[in-house]
Design a protein around this nucleic acid. Structure first.
Lengths: 163, 163
DNA sequence: GTTGTTGCAAATTGTTTGCACTGGT
DNA sequence: ACCAGTGCAAACAATTTGCAACAAC
């Protein structure tokens, strides 16, 4: 895979996106956004992003990555989900493949894998929650917990530990 | 409130519970469990529990509280929920008031408040998730995110920041 | 040239661990 | 007495912050 060329493309795209939301086009911001665009992954932790960026440019500081990610979320280009155990994962607001923007996430408490879920899996849960508690649900903000098929099979034998 | 007397009662109850699950009856374990029983609160962080215990006995170490809570979860006396931002909250498995044991939780992303939800709010979400992704849902393990009625009103004016 | 951004180092928060000692049974 | 359980200090991971140097506009 022609990393260099791809990266140039992604950098251009990143620049365009940053301009589009009226953010300054800085070295770290382009790097962060370009690598998120380039990585096939769609749920990256701040630390993941740092690792990706650092492969090509180790002058970008960890703190800057955190600040940049926050900024991109504020600008609406990214969203974040809180996973089990407190990790925060970032993904594009308008992802190429996924189920549309306010989609949900589920994380396997066994292996940590995260999957996207269509926005309508909850059915009329939101209505019931509002009735029961007055809460207005924002279910895309936290990943649901469960066990993926693989881990369920494993758990059958060794009825297991929780997160 | 007659704290001393209440506490003696709760300590007795705690001791009984510990014996019931075959755990050693130690000073810290009784203290932790008794304070959880005594506190009206039903969602306490480890740090909350430490604070409660330390009010009466400051020889119980933070690390012990963490280990004890884990132990009580393993023994089935407590459960834990992961809240937004990675905090862990503990509650009695068999709570006096709540909706039954595998109830759900929702946390307000504005004020952090946690409410219990009846176990059936999700409807047939679990079935849809299994179909869509193969995941077996364990929705009681992570709190759903939302805005409580109070915070929604506030958010109307100041369309606001996320967690 | 200003104002927003960054790098760095250090602080925070929540939680875990290694180890020598102690207390429950 | 024996071993599980505890206190302590230190390690940890993820994230945040104050501040001086710096780079976009």
């Amino acid at each position: 895979m022609g990393t260099a060329i791809d990266h140039a493309e992604q950098a251009a795209e990143a620049t365009k996106l940053l301009r589009g939301v009226g953010q300054r086009v800085t070295q770290p911001r382009v790097a962060v956004l370009a690598h998120i665009l380039a990585s096939g992954e769609d749920h990256l932790s701040a630390e993941d992003v740092l690792a990706l960026v650092s492969e090509h440019d180790d002058r970008v500081h960890r703190a800057t990555v955190y600040r940049t990610l926050d900024g991109l979320v504020a600008a609406g280009l990214l969203r974040h989900v809180h996973l089990d155990r407190g990790l925060t994962a970032y993904h594009l607001t308008d992802p190429p493949k996924a189920h549309g923007s306010p989609h949900l996430h589920a994380q396997c408490s066994g292996c940590g894998r995260v999957v996207d879920l269509p926005p309508d899996v909850l059915g009329d849960t939101a209505a019931r929650v509002r009735t029961a508690s007055g809460f207005v649900l924002d279910a895309s903000h936290v990943a649901l917990s469960g066990r993926c098929a693989d881990c369920v099979s494993l758990a059958d034998a060794r009825t297991g530990e929780d997160t």
